[in-house]
Design a protein around this nucleic acid. Structure first.
Lengths: 340, 340
DNA sequence: GACGATATGTATAACGTTCTACGTATAACG
DNA sequence: CGTTATACGTAGAACGTTATACATATCGTC
């Protein structure tokens, strides 16, 4: 067994492969990149050496000059039950193209989000997928000029620098109201987040728009009622209690998220309010908890896995060179359970 | 404004900083690394240039020769509700030392786990934190010889090449049985996973050991009963139904995970089995779902955040050069709710 | 001032891969 | 056979940072 040319730390490098196959380093690189200018014979020889030696390219070295075949995912938080499906869907697609994703958790903090995106740029990731980012559209665009970007959970169809892939949140509000109206409900309220500081890129604002439109279309413009709950997890139950104990309990409540809907269910039960007889409840996200038979929450399903798949495909096409923006909306579905 | 020396793509590089500060590239590098051999005056000058220019080191270039100040986390799956707290705790500690974590999801698949760890090595991450890996201790040790490693959810106190940080799973079984016994329960069964293919590194095997020991200590050796549920999510409910419909329903059931416990609660309710009067139920993990008032599951709390913090600290000390192994156990706590 | 010890700052190669320029071989055509 | 076009493979620089060797400056002592 001949002496092998190894990198520092005893690692098999492209030089090891070149020596084993009896070709130049540049030839091995061409084979790895599927670049023009190597014969089939040389290619076969090199691939055999790569196999035999168990060579893996150094991602760090690739980042100096070429592609790393990695994608960053920045998630707003880890505990959100909607996100695993998105990530799984994205990873399915990425894996077919030999890409790996690396996830950073932004904790809904601008500073952290910024630091993560910048670290991904510094690591020379080929692209980034943001899920429910807190950065503004302008800030997103600035980073998108530095690396390919796709955003989920941010509605900005006029954005040029990055793509968006979303569930159609207006439609989610609409189909929920339509279904409740078809059951005879007239007093349909919506539980959302504070209006202050929000814009129409936010998913809950889009859901409100759909709710309002459908109520109007059903001739229920006078019954439009949007209640606002503070976002802090600890404050949600207090705000929901206010809604449940208020003077005019609606016959149905559409909540912008499952978390709120589940808390509402809980509060209603403890007050002896019959669900769905006295109060029908619909959430949003169709999280696994919603499906527990002890919960039985009706909920709008956004098709997280499909979202992830489409977003990853869109990102790969950006990485491949496309610069014309794409803004996609996928149809949500209302999943009915006992709460409605 | 003078011409600035910029890297490819218009990026501020170490050369830009050196030129701006009027010093050599190597001096700037020494400042960045806090290395010996630069004066305070030069240091101040360089740091001002770094600030003014908004210089960020290229992580890829750092990976060629030095440290990247990044840590990989490989998680068994994304949807596990126990994991967000671990990651949050780890990230808190890592952030104080200017490290970023990047998460890969192994989906409980050996091939994927392997590929992720290798990609983290290729990216020259400074260390890796594995959460409930499926790789064997031997395989873990092989990778741990290539980069610093800490493992959570894998009990191997004799391992030399990597560290472990775990909740004391035996103790979790023990305190549960003790509490049930103190309430007068004698027929206490445990719901666990299949014995085939498992070893004592697995958390559920450790919980079984604690269960068995505490039953014996309470003079209930004859009442030891470990039921086994297949791991596939879809099969859990069928296996639990078998347990609920069996000839001898115990008076209490200790489940190795909240998922199983919640399904058991659901099954018991649908059969009219009064919880906790006819059947007391205790889960493991104290997940957010367990705490929902509509669920009210008593559960063993592992202190995920604390686990993450300790694990990150342990990893940083490994990265800092320590090679003597550390194996830490944190005490779990039984959280009581309506199910018991 | 001379000498020795220590601190400081620079020059330069290394790290592993990609990109590009270009020399040479090969094939096709007249 | 000579000419032209194309394919193939190599040499070497680039990428941005770190690590190390070493020249020179500075400080303390005699």
């Amino acid at each position: 067994m001949k002496n092998k040319i190894m990198g520092s730390n005893g690692r098999v490098t492209i030089k090891t492969v070149a020596a084993d196959a009896g070709v130049s380093v540049a030839a091995v690189s061409k084979v790895l990149r599927d670049a023009y200018g190597v014969s089939e014979a040389l290619r076969t020889k090199v691939l055999e050496s790569i196999d035999r030696l168990g060579y893996r390219p150094s991602t760090a070295a690739r980042g100096m000059r070429g592609q790393t075949y990695s994608v960053g995912i920045v998630m707003v938080e880890m505990a959100n039950p909607f996100l695993p499906e998105i990530v799984a869907g994205a990873n399915d697609v990425l894996a077919t193209e030999k890409y790996h994703s690396m996830i950073g958790v932004g904790e809904a903090q601008l500073k952290l989000e910024t630091a993560l995106i910048e670290r991904m740029i510094d690591t020379r990731m080929d692209g980034v997928l943001l899920i429910a980012p807190r950065l503004s559209g302008e800030q997103l665009a600035r980073y998108a000029r530095q690396l390919p970007m796709v955003v989920i959970g941010h509605h900005e169809p006029q954005a040029q620098a990055f793509d968006t892939v979303n569930s159609d949140d207006q439609m989610g509000g609409r189909i929920t109201v339509e279904a409740l109206v078809a059951e005879g409900h007239r007093r349909i309220a919506m539980m959302s987040l504070p209006e202050k500081g929000s814009t129409e890129v936010d998913v809950y604002r889009q859901r409100e728009i759909g709710y309002v439109e459908a109520m109007r279309a059903a001739g229920l413009g006078d019954e439009i009622r949007i209640l606002r709950s503070r976002e802090r997890r600890r404050l949600v139950e207090a705000d929901l209690a206010t809604a449940l104990d208020g003077p005019e309990l609606p016959s149905a409540m559409f909540c912008w998220s499952d978390l709120h809907a589940i808390s509402l269910l809980s509060g209603a039960k403890s007050r002896g309010i019959a669900v769905p007889e006295r109060l029908a409840v619909v959430g949003y996200d169709n999280s696994p908890v919603a499906a527990l038979s002890m919960i039985g929450l009706s909920s709008v399903d956004q098709g997280g896995r499909r979202l992830g798949e489409v977003a990853a495909r869109t990102l790969l096409s950006r990485i491949g060179g496309r610069s014309a923006p794409e803004h996609l909306l996928l149809d949500p579905v209302l999943v009915r359970r006992e709460s409605f």
